[in-house]
Write a protein that binds this DNA or RNA. Structure first.
Lengths: 195, 195
DNA sequence: TTGCCCGCTGGCACTGGGTGCCACTAGGTT
DNA sequence: AACCTAGTGGCACCCAGTGCCAGCGGGCAA
């Protein structure tokens, strides 16, 4: 049983809220794990049982995120254009309700600006890349470790990350729109470059 | 004076050699900074004066690498296609002589496979992305922090990294060829996907 | 009810990366 | 000879992360 019941879910949510607040106000490096644990009302030891590293407290339940992306890609129409499918999956999996957007902004701002979190993100992205590369491999009949699947995975993820950054930089921007703009450029060989 | 004289350059080279050997044979995490320092004949304290982090010992003089890439991009033909310029610059800056290839493989294998180094690499890549985004901004008249420059920087760097991985996976592959293959796919909207 | 087991928690001690501080030394200056 | 400076090493410290063990509470069988 991996899903948490009420008794374990409440503390986790408290920890994540405390972590986001503390990291946002004082910076990731300046906040110790003890402080986050204290603010959440748990011990330091328990904190590191919830999250393997301090950085993971920022990411919430990322494994579920990856699993949803994987499910979306596996349920995609077989013959559909690959990049379109990947873009739609990225957009769907990041289609948060208005109530969740502030927290998402807070989370992404930390991940994209704090060096330690920026570094850590590479490890999370690798999980996404694996799922996308496997989808491309299924669609094209290639090996998931071949150049094309890896290239599509890495560059679409680069596009998604860039879209997130653009979304963050503009308070009124829509995340789905930014994602489509980035993917469109990518899929058509960057027509805006005007070569 | 940032350039090192003979008295400081020799120890640095010894440290990098020792680090590469130890990390390759026993794994990055299993080797302590003390062991690297001992193997190089310096103290732990001096090691951390040479390299701000243990991971940086793997990267050699990366600032010079970025500076060379920047110089190549700034000296590029003004009207030339942007992606082609970036690809050529990537290929030129990574055009090592046959004698240096074994060390390059060792270095890249570590960076691409060791999780801690994979995470750290994001911080180095950010420096590259900045330089590339500025080049795109100069070429198109946009703001370096806009969507297109950042997107081109992130996706070309993704292509380069993927090319490195493909090169690593095949002992007989040529790095320049892999780079061009990846960039060609990227520049033409991934024709191999067959959409 | 009693005794047992089990999952979660917290405390403790330890390793290792990274840093600030200070003392020492070697080489060059006046 | 007194002096400055750059590089080095030792030391103490902070903090992330981990293994180990003790305690605690809740279910469950006898």
């Amino acid at each position: 049983m991996t899903s948490a019941n009420a008794a374990t879910q409440a503390p986790r949510a408290r920890v994540e809220r405390a972590a986001l607040e503390l990291f946002t106000s004082r910076g990731f490096d300046a906040v110790t794990a003890d402080e986050v644990a204290d603010a959440a009302g748990i011990s330091r030891r328990t904190f590191f049982r919830y999250y393997p590293t301090k950085a993971d407290a920022v990411w919430g339940d990322f494994a579920a995120h990856v699993a949803r992306l994987d499910a979306l890609l596996r349920s995609a129409v077989p013959g559909a254009p690959v990049l379109g499918t990947v873009c739609t999956a990225y957009a769907d999996v990041n289609d948060y309700g208005p109530a969740d957007l502030p927290v998402l902004r807070q989370r992404m701002r930390l991940i994209l600006t704090e060096p330690a979190l920026q570094a850590h993100s590479q490890l999370r992205y690798a999980e996404i890349d694996r799922v996308v590369a496997e989808h491309v491999a299924r669609s094209t009949g290639e090996d998931p470790s071949g150049l094309l699947p890896r290239l599509v995975a890495a560059s679409t993820r680069a596009a998604a990350t860039t879209a997130f950054a653009a979304w963050l930089a503009d308070d009124r921007a829509d995340l789905g729109v930014q994602l489509h703009r980035a993917f469109d450029e990518l899929a058509t060989g960057f027509p805006s470059l005007g070569d």
